[in-house]
Simulated scan of single mutants.
Amino acid sequence: MTQPLNTVVINGSLHRPSRTGILLNEIEKQISKRVSLETEFIDLVDLVPYIGTALCTDHLNDYAKQTLTRIEQADFLIVGTPVFKGSIPGLCKHLFDLVDMNAIAGKPVLLAATGGSTRHALMIDHQLRTLFGFFHALSLPAGVYATQEDIQDGLISSTALKQRLDLVANLATPVLQGIALQKQHNAEELIPA
């Protein structure tokens, strides 16, 4: 039995409840059916008062510093954000501006976004992959994009989105299982003979 992956789900929405949160919950649920996860959810809306004026980590309070530490120490990140005017919210980007540039190198990241129409779907590839490429994180091959038609009354209502979630979870599984096995191997090496 492998150890669960320390997973952090980051909701870049400034609203609660949000379609982004619903999408992220479903992604985590689908992946946890296939891989053992120990999950913590971080909502950007909770960090607004603490990171909005911080120019560096020295300006953060303990809560915001602990949040950054959880992100930096995660085995696996699931990051989702709404699209505003063709881009991610500035505070979501600012949160990652505060993350240590070497902390998530090589770590798998599953990317997701929500928007008002399908014309924003490429934001995942053009902005989020670029951002996590800077960190040398391992962006998983398929992301998830959803519109307001895909999520209705707090539920995933689109058959196409449900199929996409299944595909994304299946594509992520071999990578995450490999990370979990490596984590287990590293833990076993620390146990004295």
Score class of each variant (00 low, 15 high):
residue 1 M to F: 02
residue 4 P to E: 11
residue 6 N to K: 14
residue 9 V to W: 01
residue 17 P to H: 03
residue 18 S to C: 12
residue 22 I to Q: 03
residue 22 I to M: 13
residue 27 I to G: 09
residue 32 S to F: 01
residue 35 V to E: 10
residue 35 V to L: 05
residue 37 L to A: 04
residue 41 F to V: 07
residue 44 L to W: 09
residue 49 P to Q: 07
residue 52 G to A: 12
residue 52 G to P: 05
residue 55 L to C: 07
residue 66 Q to F: 04
residue 66 Q to V: 02
residue 67 T to D: 08
residue 72 E to Y: 08
residue 73 Q to V: 03
residue 73 Q to G: 03
residue 73 Q to W: 00
residue 74 A to G: 05
residue 74 A to W: 00
residue 76 F to Y: 11
residue 88 I to A: 14
residue 90 G to Y: 06
residue 94 H to W: 10
residue 94 H to N: 09
residue 95 L to V: 13
residue 99 V to T: 15
residue 100 D to E: 14
residue 100 D to A: 15
residue 102 N to I: 02
residue 102 N to P: 02
residue 107 K to T: 10
residue 113 A to H: 05
residue 113 A to N: 04
residue 114 T to V: 13
residue 115 G to Q: 01
residue 118 T to I: 14
residue 118 T to V: 13
residue 123 M to W: 02
residue 125 D to N: 09
residue 127 Q to N: 02
residue 127 Q to R: 01
residue 128 L to A: 09
residue 132 F to D: 10
residue 132 F to L: 11
residue 135 F to R: 02
residue 139 S to T: 15
residue 140 L to G: 14
residue 144 V to H: 12
residue 146 A to L: 07
residue 154 G to Q: 09
residue 155 L to P: 04
residue 158 S to D: 15
residue 160 A to C: 05
residue 162 K to Q: 15
residue 165 L to A: 10
residue 167 L to M: 09
residue 167 L to C: 06
residue 169 A to M: 08
residue 174 P to Q: 09
residue 178 G to K: 06
residue 179 I to D: 08
residue 180 A to C: 12
residue 180 A to S: 15
residue 184 Q to D: 14
residue 184 Q to I: 02
residue 184 Q to M: 03
residue 189 E to G: 06
residue 190 L to D: 08
residue 192 P to K: 10
residue 193 A to K: 13
